[in-house]
């Protein structure tokens, strides 16, 4: 039993730079948008993977960080009031009898859209999983990539693996309630904030948590219940009791179910034509890093260009009976609406 779908003109999958600018260009062309993203915020890869790293190839911005670029793109879309749905992962798409598209999220949220714009980059961003045999058996019961409920860690033997802020912050946060807590990291240096590293070392000295140098090698347990992990540091191998394992190895992206929606693909990317960025399924467009065509460059600015051409075609699909004329932003009243 699914809920009544949200009806919309354009459904944009992915709220990274390409998706955000698509909302702007569609707005200019008189099409309203809903955006979905698997992340809890807009900006996609450049907000999640490198928010503080400067980008040097955005026209007219000699230097801008991923976070700043995201903020400005959001500001730019504001006159068109796109609606955002975060923490949503698109799973299935089907063509409806009325010619529109039914798109479902893994949460059960469903959309009925006149056009679908895939701006999903390399796919949904998700935690990196170490290549440990049987890891799937423990995920959600003993192995976690984030802490949603602290209570699930109280009174447990916890191992936290990683060397960044998330790893250290959670190690120190969970240690007081844990039966034992071991931070496992491959080297003495940490990427985490120096103040956190000092505090962690003080806690280790005070015996309130452990720190071991090493990398994970093996999971030990049965029926989804982890008992211990085996780790190694060079030739030395050792076991640590672990009924909960928290992994912080950063993020990666996977195209996932999108690749099975029936569009023609090449090397995991969606084939489009370069006149209007429509895929092999009329009404479904792909822009940004998700699409491929001869000469494709994975640049943010290419995603912007693709968004503009896509919007010219998409507006004709959404409003086939209207007369469409291209309007420059300098003369468009729409783009000037005070935000």
């Amino acid at each position: 039993m699914s809920n009544a779908p949200v009806t919309c003109e354009a459904l944009i999958i992915g709220a990274g730079p390409a998706g955000l600018f698509a909302a702007f260009q569609l707005g200019m062309a008189g099409v309203s948008s809903h955006l979905v993203d698997v992340l809890p915020h807009a900006g996609g890869q450049c907000a999640e993977l490198y928010p503080q790293k400067p980008i040097y190839d955005i026209p007219a911005h000699p230097r801008i960080t991923g976070a700043e670029l995201t903020d400005r793109l959001l500001e730019q879309t504001r006159p068109f009031s796109p609606l955002f749905h975060f923490n949503e992962r698109a799973t299935s798409l089907r063509k409806l009898d009325n010619g529109r598209f039914g798109v479902e999220m893994d949460s059960g949220l469903a959309f009925e859209a006149a056009v679908v714009v895939i701006a999903a980059g390399g796919g949904a961003i998700q935690p990196k999983k170490p290549p440990l045999r049987g890891i799937e058996d423990y995920e959600g019961t003993s192995i976690f990539y984030a802490v949603k409920d602290k209570a699930a860690f109280a009174g447990e033997h916890i191992v936290v693996a990683g060397g960044g802020d998330s790893a250290l912050d959670w190690a120190m946060e969970l240690a007081p309630e844990a039966k034992s807590l071991t931070l496992l990291h491959r080297r003495e240096q940490f990427r985490a904030a120096p103040a956190s590293v000092r505090r962690m070392r003080q806690m280790v000295e005070a015996g309130r948590m452990d720190f071991r140098l090493g990398q994970l090698r093996q999971l030990i347990g049965e029926n989804g219940q982890l008992r211990a992990v085996r780790a190694a540091n060079g030739r030395e191998s050792f076991e640590i009791p672990a009924t909960r394992l928290l992994l912080f190895f950063g993020l990666t992206n996977k195209m996932g179910p999108l690749a099975q929606w029936g569009m023609e693909m090449q090397g995991g990317l969606i084939i489009v034509n370069t006149a209007d960025f429509e895929t092999s399924i009329p009404g479904i467009f792909a822009i940004g890093d998700a699409c491929v065509y001869p000469g494709k460059l994975k640049l943010i600015l290419s995603g912007f260009h693709e968004a503009a051409l896509m919007a010219q075609k998409a507006c004709r699909r959404v409003h086939p009976d209207e007369h469409h004329t291209f309007v420059h932003s300098t003369s468009s009243r729409l783009a000037h609406k005070p935000s």
């Binding site: 990196k128 170490p130 290549p131 990683g162 060397g163 960044g164 990291h185 491959r186 080297r187 240096q189 990427r191 990398q215 994970l216 190895f249 950063g250």
Partner: peptide, 11 residues
Amino acid sequence: EEDMLDFAFDV
């Protein structure tokens, strides 16, 4: 690069 290798496995 050393920092980023923290995200790799079996370094």
